[in-house]
Design a protein around this nucleic acid. Sequence first.
DNA 1: TACACCAAGTGACTATTGTCACATCCAAGC
DNA 2: GCTTGGATGTGACAATAGTCACTTGGTGTA
Lengths: 238, 238
Amino acid sequence: MQVIWDGTKLVKADELAGILAEHSLFADCDEAELADLILRGHFVQYEKGDDLIMQGDPGNSLLILLSGNARTSLIASNGHEIVLDYAEPGQVLGEIALLDGGERTASVTAIELTTALTITRAAFEEILKKHKNMALRLLKVMANRIRTANTMIEGDRAYTSGPRLARYLLRLSVVGAEEGRLKLDLSQSELGNFAGMSREHINRQLSTWSEDGIVSVESGKVRILNHATLSNIANADS
Amino acid sequence: MQVIWDGTKLVKADELAGILAEHSLFADCDEAELADLILRGHFVQYEKGDDLIMQGDPGNSLLILLSGNARTSLIASNGHEIVLDYAEPGQVLGEIALLDGGERTASVTAIELTTALTITRAAFEEILKKHKNMALRLLKVMANRIRTANTMIEGDRAYTSGPRLARYLLRLSVVGAEEGRLKLDLSQSELGNFAGMSREHINRQLSTWSEDGIVSVESGKVRILNHATLSNIANADS
DNA sequence: TACACCAAGTGACTATTGTCACATCCAAGC
DNA sequence: GCTTGGATGTGACAATAGTCACTTGGTGTA
């Protein structure tokens, strides 16, 4: 982890605007807001494997992911690892602990070279006070997160492993992707931690679907060949 | 469902202050804020079984529960019912759909005679504009909700039925309750929908614990006799 | 090229939990 | 008291998914 020289801020201003415009719920920030985010934030770079956020730490900052990809995961008290989400550029991270003053419930780990804009609690409060729309934006980000969490609970509870894996694969799929490529090429163990199944079970399920031409698994990369069928499976009765 | 006569507002003002002060994250509202909530909101009463919020509806209002108790639940596309939470007076409900303009993902059903303060989107936006602290309060409410959801995911994923049921029982337990009584006396089927287990499995687990003196089940009411042991079970390795 | 390592594939077995089918029990009313 | 419907208790069985123990494959490096 390395703090990028402040002088870079001039360069990064445009970049931030671009990233937010593309992906984020912060897309509609006006120039003054962007300027303040940049002015009061710090750009930090993380190597693959570095933690942007560490479970158990006090949560005194908020991050906006600028480039790279990160995994949000937590270790239950019995050692079980659970992957909650994968974050893309534009994503806001770490709001929960910042807002309620509690510990970080999950870790966020860079899965490749990643840069983020870090905003301390003090800076965050100033920005919130100065730009009233920021609060509303954050509220939307969080509404989104709750929906995702509820969908996860629904999937875990109501569906058996097949439909569930289908759902997680669809969640990883890019809308207009050529050849059904996924946003991230996860190993089968990682897929297991994400979908809540053992590696072996993932393997068997993928093999079955591969035979039926629903997905392909080549050199460790899963592709969705038949999006429609996979969607049907995701909503199957059991 | 019945809208209470506006004249009641004078009476309810004190009541609202009292309720919020006791239970809610809105406890620190000042008088002007409370007055605005009451002025722009509608008091509505619900009979047992009425829906305060219905899954699938457009979400154009926010509720604050004033008295009674309600269950937040959703029906998955395969018909499986999942109870997400039980709401007490002071709880804010329905923020998610209000904020992101989406459908209501879950229903909220009165499980006894219940009253709530309903605030429309327009009124909500005015209040938010006028009282800057309201946004921050809502942010905290939502942070809380995300933590609860993550805890649920963690529990569902990492633990077997025993520890899981223990967790849900503890979630229903009142801190200083005499005799370990729960906040709500749920039937075993309802407990099942809450903890994600079949009614029969709930029954067997409770029987076992009952023999060990950890809980008691008399006339359909569960009480926690040995809080410490139950907590241990909730964090057991499997 | 050979070694090392880690991801992936697979068979056999086990464990946990759900399902089905009843028997009971109990509280509310008639 | 009697009836009745819903909540409970319980045994037997089935199904889903995890675990264990390997084998196989692929990639990077000495």
